[in-house]
Write a protein that binds this DNA or RNA. Structure first.
Length: 313
DNA sequence: ATGCCTACCTGGGAGC
DNA sequence: TGCTCCCAGGTAGGCA
């Protein structure tokens, strides 16, 4: 399941393999892959022919190739990619023979190809204008542009964004916004409009690291505790990124088709019944938002009282 | 506005 | 062997 570390790994691959190479054509094999592109597959191909990516940028789980503006002052635009829960971007060499779930091919003018592969079809591609960010500062990782694609305008800065780094005013503001929510801690972490890049895996791993229960009321946490939670998530993500991300089966790989190695480091996600690495208590799996949450029942005690308790002070 | 829920989609595995 | 059901989950959109 691609979350921030997996998407960042793909971004780095695209920075190496796509920037500076002209796009000759786009072949869409399944229309659903471009469902969010106004005008559909034919329009996407028409508008992308001759485009040249000049940067690969990411915010949260969104990734985009900034395209070199055509002469004549046309608005800046980008090819936006979201991997959904099973999307992959592969070089033709990295993919080998055409994979079963190949959804679109990006044909490059020099003969190379980039393939968009996606089993569960939640991922998508679209061409979109770049618009000014509403929160100021750089638009994301991989570029200092102050512009983001339209569909990303409502996505908050992500946990590894320098503008919300520990000790910055951005971080202090984020801590206050988390505490201002009237919801459970994990729900808040998964809200991409509050802080982006976190999905089910790294939410559970981060909560285990800072010993918080997923139903802890955000408003009941001190500023120091919220800070610790965000630090824990950022630590887990940084370690996962160094390992190339987390892979289950073959559903997540980098542009060369290589799997991430962080799955070996998971403390609780998918570890039901296994002993907690800190205290030995068996990890439990519990229903949460029609999905699952994993936690150590001893390290991460269920909070007393309802999630809607007031601020601690 | 905020919080919360559901649909979307596919293939692998469990259960019968 | 083959069928049915369940599960994974990021996001948009709709509800109260």
């Amino acid at each position: 399941m691609p979350e921030l570390p997996e998407v960042e790994t793909v971004r780095r691959g695209l920075e190496t393999f796509a920037v500076g190479r002209e796009i000759a054509d786009v072949v869409v094999l399944r229309d659903r892959a471009v469902r969010r592109h106004e005008g559909g597959a034919a329009d996407l191909a028409l508008r992308l022919r001759g485009a040249v990516p000049v940067a690969a940028v990411r915010r949260g789980k969104y990734l985009w190739l900034v395209l070199r503006p055509a002469a004549g002052g046309e608005p800046a635009r980008a090819l936006l990619v979201h991997l959904g829960m099973s999307g992959q971007v592969l070089t033709r060499a990295g993919a080998g023979d055409a994979p079963a779930h190949l959804r679109a091919r990006l044909l490059l003018a020099d003969g190379g190809e980039l393939w968009f592969v996606d089993q569960r079809t939640f991922g998508h591609l679209l061409l979109t204008p770049l618009v000014p960010t509403t929160d100021g500062g750089p638009g994301g990782h991989g570029s200092d542009l102050r512009l983001v694609p339209t569909p990303v305008a409502h996505i908050a800065r992500d946990v590894l964004d320098p503008l919300v780094a520990p000790g910055t005013p951005g971080r202090a503001g984020l801590v206050d916004r988390v505490r201002g929510r009237r919801t459970g801690l994990k729900r808040a972490l998964l809200d991409q409009a509050l802080v982006s890049g976190i999905g089910n895996i790294y939410a559970d791993e981060g909560l285990w690291r800072c010993r918080e229960h997923y139903e802890r009321a955000t408003a009941s946490l001190s500023r120091a505790r919220v800070t610790r939670v965000l630090d824990a998530v950022a630590e887990v993500m940084t370690e996962a990124l160094a390992a190339g991300g987390t892979s289950f089966d073959a559903l997540y790989v980098d542009v060369n088709g290589a799997s991430g190695r962080y799955d070996r480091s998971l403390a609780v996600y998918g570890q039901a019944g296994r002993p907690c690495r800190r205290c030995g208590t068996p990890v439990v799996r519990e229903p949460f938002m029609n999905r699952s949450s994993f936690r150590c029942p001893r390290c991460q005690r269920r909070p007393r009282g309802d999630v809607r308790v007031g601020p601690a002070g």
